[in-house]
């Protein structure tokens, strides 16, 4: 069972747009909520109201600063969850067969009634996608909301992972990355979607869209960037009236601008 399938019929996964993610953490909260209330052991918290709270999360948003050689630094919010790898090392290391990759859609899942909580799969994952739930003693990971995407009790627009559904900036996309004609595949091709840690040989299904280059000020001439600039030239160069008198009076004091 823990042998990986030679091929999957579909490769369902996420495309995460680092250009549009605003780091609002909505996906983190909706993921924690859905996956606590639905399939499998709830995502527990330890010392939730104490001095050192911690808990299980299947999706976390990091923030990175990228400083180019020239120009200004850029802040990039970076959601990270299971990438549902084609060559998932977490599946093959599992001693009990609890971890598996589904043939029909490529989703990597944990059968919680077989998991012994040895933690080896979490060690084998380079992305930190798996967390051992300290209350249940079993490994938790992103299920790609397998209990939503095929759930006919939900309205059709809700049959997507909850992180995608809740994203207010449209930074998360869900679809079949094995189908070259799918919308997510087109997005990946169009925007140069990339793998995380390709050197690990995990062949992730999830792709990340790099941030677009930021607009730059073309030069020092304000007319280059603003068509209205000529019309908005300063009305008065010298202050007049009371403020003008104050300006001149203060300049006459020692240290003032003469």
């Amino acid at each position: 069972m823990t042998e990986l399938p030679a091929a999957t019929q579909r490769s369902m996964g996420l495309v995460i747009d680092l250009d549009t993610c605003v780091g609002c953490q909505a996906c983190v909260i909706s993921c924690k909520g859905w996956n606590t209330e639905n399939y499998g052991a709830p995502l527990s918290d330890q010392d939730a109201y104490g001095a050192a709270p911690s808990g299980s999360f299947l999706n976390r948003v990091h923030s990175y600063e990228v400083q180019p050689e020239q120009g200004q630094a850029q802040l990039i919010h970076f959601p990270k969850s299971c990438l549902h790898c084609e060559d998932a090392p977490c599946v093959t290391v599992c001693p009990t067969g609890a971890s598996y990759k589904r043939v029909e859609d490529g989703i990597v899942l944990v059968n919680e009634s077989d998991c012994i909580g040895c933690g080896l799969c979490a060690w084998s994952c380079p992305y930190g996608a798996r967390e051992l739930d300290l209350a249940a003693g079993v490994m938790k990971k992103c299920t790609l909301c397998v209990d939503r995407i095929y759930n006919e009790n939900l309205p059709e627009e809700d049959r997507i992972p909850t992180c995608v559904r809740s994203c207010p900036s449209g930074a998360r996309h869900f679809g079949d990355l094995g189908d070259p004609d799918s919308e997510v595949s087109a997005l990946v091709a169009d925007r140069g979607g990339m793998d995380l840690m390709p050197e690990m040989g995990t062949r992730p299904v999830n792709k990340y869209l790099p941030p677009r280059p930021k607009d730059r000020l073309a030069g020092n001439n304000p007319q280059d960037i603003d068509l209205l600039a000529p019309l908005l030239s300063p009305v008065a160069t010298d202050a007049a009236g009371f403020l003008g008198w104050l300006d001149r009076a203060l300049d006459k004091l020692p240290g003032g601008e003469r």
């Binding site: 976390r60 990091h62 923030s63 990228v66 180019p68 630094a73 850029q74 979490a122 380079p126 990339m194």
Partner: peptide, 24 residues
């Protein structure tokens, strides 16, 4: 390589996902 952002400049971890610790 972990973030795929290396080609754009020097990457620095700016803010962790949470203030506390975690299993990882």
């Amino acid at each position: 390589t972990a973030t795929g952002l290396g080609g754009r400049g020097e990457v620095r971890a700016f803010e962790p996902p949470h203030t506390g610790s975690n299993y990882l």
